[in-house]
Design a protein around this nucleic acid. Structure first.
Lengths: 222, 222
DNA sequence: TTAAGTATAATTGTATACAATTATACTTAC
DNA sequence: GTAAGTATAATTGTATACAATTATACTTAA
């Protein structure tokens, strides 16, 4: 009989701690808990109906990922993300994504390449349909596959701890249909470079892609 | 009366959790706990004479930093770091340190500049004395000041979660007096670029500095 | 009215108790 | 002797109890 297996790498999402972590993270990202607000363990445990233990552990994780800052006897204070932060995040992302694309070109498997093609096809579909929500999902998928295909543990670890920063900086950058079409073109170009095993080109295109995303973002804000 | 203040940013080091974390981290880095070995909460709590609670929290932190991997009912397994990992770590470090130097050139304060000069002077002293241990300390200090001076929260966060990787990859690269003298020269060059507020040059020199460190490391290994 | 001091409440840090899951060792049937 | 099944032990996950620290509110004196 086929054994039902969990994804071991993300095993903790089935625990209370994991659920609590994702819940609080989402509530912060969606503005339920606002920057400067302090979250005490007691309040959270009452809000979510669990004991303090999983709350404590989730808060620790949130702090290590930089979403909150624990201050003694005050609770976990939700960190603010400034325009300066976002600019820097995009700069850092250029390098990380550039490396991912470069190493992916060298190490991608044919299965992953198929996944990548599929993700871009879906992206095209939802770009035409002008559906920002699904678009964001497959944009994320494109980048995720790239990281997986890079086969670099240190790089993947780096991205993991940086992930929420990326997420925060990216919200709202999919509303413009013009930018969506450009992003699609850029993804196709990166895909082609990877198909041709042109690592240098893939890196340059990925860097340019993030640079354009950053510029679209800041333009959006004005 | 002058109030005795703790360094708030590192407040947790005074807690049991913090002490436990540093203890286990060091024991892993120094090979007391070897790759593949699994550390159970019970064993650790008996070894260190504290309850499971701070142990659990320290293990969580170790996992988020990538030193161990928790597997259910097996304990925290110490991760191995491969030669491939180290090569990739150096590549990633080139970019991170490059950014730090670039932004430091733009944002450094005169106090920080003084600290940086002092660190390099100490480095020179211990290079001449051929004292690898102190040398490593002030090499670390040089890079720490650079990050602080960059004034970038996202970058500092990135380094924090990447720190142990750097540490692991760097062990033993200070034994060669030849490389020590080169490293000193490179640090002086970076310092000069920062004094001259030449951000581009500082970045290039920092990247080159890490590239040389990587090459010295791999040469050492052969 | 304000400042200082004190009692109380709130909050976190640590230890421990209990439950649920999983591994291990042993027994038994073939 | 081996495989299957079962009982036991080990391990983690969660809840709770207690201690220590810190904030807060209140009282009192000037």
């Amino acid at each position: 009989m086929a054994k039902i297996e969990r994804d071991e790498s993300e095993n903790y999402i089935y625990s209370l701690r994991g659920k609590v972590f994702y819940r609080i993270q989402n509530d912060i990202l969606n503005g339920v808990y606002k920057p400067g607000e302090s979250l005490t363990e007691k309040k959270l445990s009452e809000d979510l109906g669990v004991s303090r233990t999983p709350i404590r552990e989730a808060i620790m994780q949130l702090e290590l990922e930089g979403l909150v800052k624990s201050v003694p006897n005050k609770g976990a204070v939700v960190k603010e993300i400034t325009a300066k932060d976002i600019k820097e995040i995009y700069t850092i992302r250029m390098m990380i994504e550039g490396l991912a694309a470069r190493w992916a070109a060298d190490n991608i498997t044919s299965e992953e390449l198929d996944e990548l093609k599929e993700a871009v096809d879906f992206e095209e579909f939802y770009t035409i349909k002008n559906d920002p929500e699904h678009l964001m999902k497959f944009d994320s998928k494109f980048h995720e596959i790239l990281f997986k295909a890079s086969k670099s543990d240190p790089l993947m670890h780096l991205l993991k701890t940086f992930h929420h920063y990326v997420h925060r900086a990216r919200i709202g950058s999919f509303k413009s249909p013009i930018r969506a079409r450009e992003a699609l073109k850029e993804h196709r170009a990166i895909l082609d470079a990877i198909i041709n095993k042109d690592a240098k080109m893939a890196e340059e295109l990925a860097i340019e892609h993030i640079r354009n995303a950053a510029s679209a973002y800041s333009h959006n804000k004005v």
